[in-house]
Amino acid sequence: MNGGPVKVSGDAGKRSARLAPAVSSALWNAAVLCAALAAWQLLTLVVNSRFLPGPVAIARAFVDLAVNGDTGGRTLWEHSVASVERVLVGFGIAVMLGVPLGLLMGLYGRVYANTRVVLEPFRFIPPIAWIPLAIIFFSGMTRFAFLIFLGAFFPVFTAALIGVRRVELIHRKVALVFGASKGWILAHIVVPTVLPDILGGMRVGLGAAWLTIVAAELAGGISLGLGRMMSNYAELVQVPQVIVGMILIGALGFLMNEVLLLAEKFLFRWRWQVTL
């Protein structure tokens, strides 16, 4: 072409330019975390109450729970695995049903228009409101999977449903002119367009899943799970152990969110970033 490889500005020296912000962001986050912990520890020194443990006391409780386990001898690891397992099963089912249903109803608007009177009200019943029924009907994993599914399904389903509207007529035309089948258009035009919405919906759904699992575990009838553990220690008025559970839930949710963010970064290299 005229002039050959004229580099698009901003793309020269891609590597170093991309790495630097990531490193600086990590450093910033570490610094902010340290500052927050220090401020907290300082506050506990001022207040000095058994009900406001500092980071040091919580770290001690964490190590104790991790090594020796709780009053029943169950370690933090066992509690975490139980909760994570429930979240993944319920969330997985929500994604596996929410995405295809959302796409189907988005593509065939009449299906949604004609069924939404049954579908939509469920969105407004909080999953927590299902706990009493779930306790009567289900037990064990089924109960948790059911409740988490209720929490995570709608964010994913709605994201896919709405995302379909974003498919551009011209992109469909491109495929149609070459004689593409419906399946091809679904896989290569609709899905790539909607995928960013779906991943966004999954991140919202994941939040809802954690919200639900802890509430469901508090309800009792089981011995494992972070919610269960917190509930036990709350009855014993042992605040550090309760806070350990809270922090762990935050950290696990954060990690899962990071995995989804990483997937987004990898999948949507084609997207541009708007800044104001």
Binding site: I170, V174, L176, V177, F178, G179, S181, I189, W270
Partner: peptide, 22 residues
Amino acid sequence: VDPKRDRISFVFQEPSTLPWLN
């Protein structure tokens, strides 16, 4: 005319590249 059978190509008036493909 049947785009599945006939080999037709179309250069559109409006931008038509697929943004998720290089």
